[in-house]
C-alpha cells in the first residue's frame, strides 16, 4: 500500500509543516516515507507545496505527480493540481478560502471550512492542522491514536506551549 499526498497552498499557511507532521507520524508507525518540499525563491504569500509519500514498501521517486490525496488551501493550487489526482483519489479543499467546487466527478471530495474553524478555536494559523485531522480521518493513511507523539517531534521544545493548540486543531478537523 502506497499513498502519494500533495499538499499545496500559499507560503505561510504551514503547508510544509503539515507535510512534516504526517511524515513524522508515518515514521512513528514504522512506515516507509519521503517528504519533498517545493523550494525556490519563495516567500510568504507565494505558492508552496510538498510531496509526502507513505508506503509499506521502499519509496521510489519522491516526487508526487499523480496524487492519491490532494490537500489544497488556495484556489491556484486547486486549479493547478485538480486534474493530476488519480481517478478514485481524494481531494480536501479549504472551503473558507476556495469558493468554487471541484469539477472532477471521479474523485471523492471533502470540503472543510478549515480557516473558519481555525478562527473559531482561536488558532487562526492552524487551518493546516485542521485539514490534516480531516485527512487522517477520511484516508486512514496513518492511525489517529498517539497523535500527540508525532506533535512532540515537530513542535520544538522551545515552542512546547503550542502543542496543545495544535492538538486541538487536529481534533477539530478529525471530528468535523
Amino acid at each position: 500500500m502506497t499513498t502519494q499526498i500533495l499538499i499545496a497552498g500559499f507560503g505561510g499557511q504551514g503547508v510544509l509543516f503539515a507535510g512534516k507532521f504526517l511524515a513524522y507520524k508515518a515514521l512513528l508507525e514504522n512506515k516507509q516515507l519521503s517528504w519533498l518540499p517545493s523550494y525556490g525563491p519563495e516567500m510568504r504569500g507565494g505558492t508552496a507545496n510538498c510531496s509526502v509519500i507513505i508506503s509499506d514498501e521502499p519509496v521510489g521517486s519522491p516526487i508526487v505527480s499523480k496524487p492519491d490525496v490532494l490537500i489544497v488551501m488556495n484556489l491556484p493550487s486547486l486549479d493547478k493540481y485538480e486534474d493530476a489526482v488519480v481517478p478514485g483519489g481524494k481531494i480536501f479543499v479549504d472551503s473558507t478560502l476556495i469558493e468554487r467546487k471541484v469539477n472532477r466527478t471521479d474523485v471523492e471530495v471533502h470540503y472543510i471550512p478549515a480557516t473558519k474553524l481555525a478562527n473559531d478555536i482561536n488558532a487562526p494559523t492552524l487551518a493546516n492542522m485542521i485539514m490534516i485531522g480531516k485527512v487522517i480521518k477520511e484516508t486512514g493513511v496513518v492511525p489517529y491514536d498517539n497523535i500527540d507523539k508525532a506533535l512532540d517531534k515537530v513542535v520544538s521544545a522551545r515552542k512546547a506551549a503550542l502543542k496543545e493548540i495544535n492538538f486541538k486543531a487536529l481534533d477539530t478537523g478529525y471530528n468535523n
Binding site: S34, V59, P62
Partner: peptide
C-alpha cells in the same frame, strides 16, 4: 542534487 539535499527521509 537539489532533490536529495531538500528531501526528508528516515
Amino acid at each position: 542534487d537539489g532533490t536529495m539535499g531538500q528531501m526528508m527521509e528516515p
